[in-house]
Design a protein around this nucleic acid. Structure first.
Length: 645
RNA sequence: GCCGAUGUAGCUCAGGGGUAGAGCGUUUCCUUGGUAAGGAAGAGGUCACGGGUUCAAUUCCCGUCAUCGGCUCCA
């Protein structure tokens, strides 16, 4: 007998060799029907795996991330089996579960697959589900595994196995399909009730652009048809929050082929929104001791050669601009850092002067690959809410923490709760990707790790994602469809100060090198606004909304009074519109609601005679009648909701 | 840049080898109405662009461009 400990600390005895499925059955038949996989001592395993020793377990159902993962991983095998049956000779790369479903990378030889083929594959998958195929684990030696795939002619699997340590390798067999796989899997396909293939894409083998491109098929499965229906409905709803759609509907921004790809045009309402955000951050930065600077949109090519940016990114930039002077070339500014370094160099600093914090809403231009452009989130011309902090080595941690505080304050003010934090360090192998000494890199990375720890931030550490001059701390927020975008970024840099020979005079009367912190709490105005739009679905908080109110006269007879109200509000810095059309009030309200204008002020005979307005709040309905002064108070109370930094 | 899909009015979309439709929006007129759509008439299209097949192409084929979903990249 062995002792099995459940998550609630209850301990029960079972025969040695009992399986997760048998344990589930011993609890209830209902659980046995729902259970998908098991964690044994914290390791995710097959339900059919015999448990031979005392263990702590947790049974996973669809309600757990682990249960979903098992279901989707098995579904990837199911799909691969269906594709192999339909397209014999297909070679298989990898097929993991992902956040929403699964994919499989396949090589169909000369055949091409398109979304028109999805239905056929889905039908085949469901057919295989009805056969109730079991997932059977087999363990073989590395040699046997290699022999199997060499014989099958699947070079991708051979490639994968070759990288594995010698020893036992597991295969999973379901129906006629056998796959190299660590597992775990469902006991059989019976839990899979609804199948939907979602999209098709090219994906480079092992994520390497120089290697062959495989066909990646994305899909998702559910234990109930209803769950699939709900998921598809959720996707439809998410599309309604798309910033590109709302940006057009609310007249915030646009693109023009004549102006150029990825070069956003900020329309009047979008510009107002952006300025509100800029004003907000400028106020915060003024309090935090930042000094505004302004630098040109172009810079001599030598500046970027000095910084190292040209060597690293020159070929991916807009081409240099030639001038009438022989051999003279300028670049469109791809980043602000070198300019700010030059500003630092215009005077001599004492250690007592540091830190110096230079801030600029700096517009930069980067020639992003055409396939990468995406609404406002990935563009070729954008404005960074940039600043560079030049400080003494002993000030790095404190300054870094202060920047984290600004980022967190902004996220709080905008109600961004669902963000993740990532620490990007250098790749210790590909040393040539970076400039500067290992000693400086170690110092910079340590500073970030310490500051993050001190702030209690739960950060994911990723090696190889650092900028070429220093490690980063990034704040990522998801868009409506769950795609992660990097917004706020903070970077520690010991290298550019060396390249630019930046100095300050220390208390020892000697020259010392300052440390530079690059930081942009929004990241860029474009991307931040995009994510903000998707976050609030265009229903901006009052302090950000481009237009605050609209006056709706009930009929033409009250136009004069309506205009009086309009002027009164506009003269009091409340951006207000008026709807003078000869339309019914219901229509005017409907249109104002659609335009997501925070306040609707309805005026008719009653209001004119009393000198009042009837207030309707966007999304909330009628608030009743207010004198103008009462409305001002209502407005001020709401606009002051943002707490002070 | 690469893979796949898509491209018809300002927007959302239908149609289909015989040169084009709806709703919303817009314009004009009527209507002067109290909390999410009043009525009528009109204007608006090189059916993305360039080739090819055909008596005839917006429709079929090829190419280009753009957009969308991914991959790669992201200072």
């Amino acid at each position: 007998m062995i002792k099995i400990t459940f998550p609630d600390k209850v301990v029960r005895s079972y025969q040695s060799g009992v399986t997760g499925l048998e344990i589930a059955k011993s609890i209830s038949e209902g659980l046995a029907r729902k259970v998908l996989s098991i964690s044994i001592n914290g390791n995710l395993k097959d339900l059919t795996m015999p448990i031979l020793e005392d263990a702590s377990i947790k049974l996973h159902t669809w309600d757990d991330p682990e249960g979903k993962a098992t279901m989707w991983h098995s579904s990837a095998h199911l799909m691969a089996g269906a594709i192999e049956a339909l397209y014999p000779g297909t070679k298989f790369g990898i097929g993991p579960d992902v956040e929403n479903g699964f994919y499989y990378d396949i090589d169909l030889g000369g055949h091409t697959l398109s979304s028109n083929d999805f239905e056929k594959i889905e039908r085949k998958m469901l057919e295989m589900v009805r056969e109730n195929q079991a997932f059977v684990r087999k363990e073989v030696s590395k040699e046997e595994a290699l022999a199997y795939y060499i014989d099958k002619g699947d070079e991708y699997k051979v490639d994968l196995i070759s990288d594995l340590e010698p020893g036992t390798i597991s295969f999973y067999e379901s129906g006629h399909f056998t796959d190299l796989c660590r597992g775990p899997h469902l006991p059989d396909t019976s839990a899979i009730k609804a199948v939907k293939l979602l999209s098709i894409a090219g994906a480079y083998w092992r994520g390497d652009e120089s290697r062959k491109q495989l066909t990646r098929v994305y899909g998702i499965t559910f234990p109930k048809q209803k769950d699939l229906d709900e998921y598809l409905l959720m996707l439809e709803e998410a599309k309604k929050r798309d910033h590109r759609k709302i940006g057009r509907e609310l007249e915030l921004f646009a693109f023009s082929a004549n102006v150029g790809l990825g070069l956003p045009l900020w329309l009047p309402k979008g510009a107002e929104l952006r300025e509100n955000l800029e004003k907000f951050l400028k106020k915060v930065q003024r309090k935090a001791g930042y000094l505004p600077v302004i630098t040109p949109h172009i810079g001599n090519i030598n500046l970027y050669m000095l910084s190292g940016h040209y060597e690293k990114y020159g070929k991916d930039s807009f081409k240099p601009i030639s001038t009438p002077a022989e051999g003279e070339e300028f670049m469109l500014k791809p980043m602000n850092c070198p300019h700010h370094c030059e500003i630092y160099k215009t005077k001599q600093y004492s250690y007592k002067d540091l830190p110096v914090r230079l801030a600029e809403f700096g517009t930069v231009y980067r020639y992003e690959q055409s396939g990468e452009l995406h609404g406002l989130t990935r563009v070729r011309g954008f404005t960074q809410d940039d600043a560079h902090i030049f400080c003494r080595p002993d000030q790095v941690k404190e300054e870094f923490i202060k920047v984290i505080d600004i980022v967190l304050y902004i996220f709080k003010a905008l109600d961004f709760k669902d963000y993740s934090v990532q620490i990007s360090l250098r790749d210790p192998v590909l040393r040539e990707k970076y400039i500067g000494s290992d000693e400086n890199w170690d110092k910079a990375e340590l500073a970030i790790l310490e500051a993050t720890k001190e702030k209690g931030l739960e950060a994911r550490i990723v090696t190889g994602e650092a900028a070429f001059y220093g490690p980063k701390l990034d704040f990522m927020v998801k868009d409506a469809l769950g795609r992660k975008w990097q917004l706020g970024t903070i970077q520690v840099d010991y290298n550019l100060p060396e390249r630019f020979e930046l100095e300050y005079i220390g208390s020892d009367n000697q020259k010392h090198r300052p440390v530079m912190i690059h930081r942009a709490p929004f990241g860029s105005m474009e991307r931040f606004v995009a994510v903000l739009i998707e976050h609030c679905a265009g229903n901006f908080p009052l302090w950000l909304a481009p237009d605050k109110a609209i006056v709706l006269p009930i009929s033409d007879k009250y136009q004069n009074y309506a205009k009086k109200v309009l002027n009164l509000l506009n003269n009091n810095e409340i951006r207000t519109l008026i709807d003078e059309r000869s339309e019914k009030t219901g229509k005017k309200i409907r249109d104002a609601e659609t335009r997501k204008i925070p306040f609707m002020l309805i005026v008719g005979e009653k209001e004119e005679s009393e000198g009042t307005v009837s207030v309707r709040k966007h999304g909330q309905g009628d608030l009743g009648t207010f004198s103008i002064d009462e409305f001002f108070k209502l407005y001020q109370d709401e606009i002051n909701i943002v707490s002070e930094y």
